[in-house]
Nucleic acid binder design. Sequence first.
DNA 1: ATGGTGGGTGTCCCA
Length: 262
Amino acid sequence: MKIASFNINGVKARIAQLTAWLPEAQPDVVVLQEIKTVDEGFPAEMIEDLGWQVWTHGQKSWNGVALLSRLPVEDVRRGLPGDDGDEQARWIEAEVMGARHAVTVAGLYLPNGNPAPGPKYDYKLAWMERLRARAAALLDTEAPVVMLGDYNVIPEPRDAAHPERWVEDALFLPETRAAFRRIVNQGWTDALRIRDPHGTRGPFTFWDYQRQAWERDNGIRIDHLLLSPQAADLMRDAGVDRDQRATEKPSDHVPVWVEIDA
DNA sequence: ATGGTGGGTGTCCCA
């Protein structure tokens, strides 16, 4: 089962790239972030025509996540638990039926949090605390779980081309990184990191539109795939579809993926 | 220190 995550920065602006990438990358399950539309505005038919089922958790103008699957799906759940007043669409999870295992797939779009300090950073940290609670509950199921998406967290200096430029950014502040570590240290495996445990740089998943960041390879690693122990046992490979950043009208993120023997 | 770029349904906000 190949599971991918892609922050597409607006599904309507990116539908050509998305429908080209899907048959090329051949994932079985995809979670999308920043669809930037309400459910009714999502171009589901164009994706269904390619053989996919589509579930959305949309929102007007900003945020919004979706789950696409070629495999049977059960029990789609929308919204991160822990705050009934939270209007922001940043979480979708479901059970995906592989040939051998049912896999829990949770797609997330963690708040950016800038500027820090401030109310947006407070919201980010509160959201990460709710994520920690949900992640612990998912681990308790002892099922294979893949929790993936745009975490808006640069875990370590080696995850940025120029870490010194990020020291005051909400994506790299010590409190942000500590909150991310608290989740990982529950027992999750960072699939892109363990694929190259001693790598000194990257792999990057985001390059800013500004200042020729892509041309200079001034990137950061903020899209992550966290695997529960039962999913990590099944892991075959993981990677970053870096060439998607060089397409016409690209997103500022590229797809990340993991293959598990499920 | 500044402003640079891109998407949305927007004449500003968010990343």
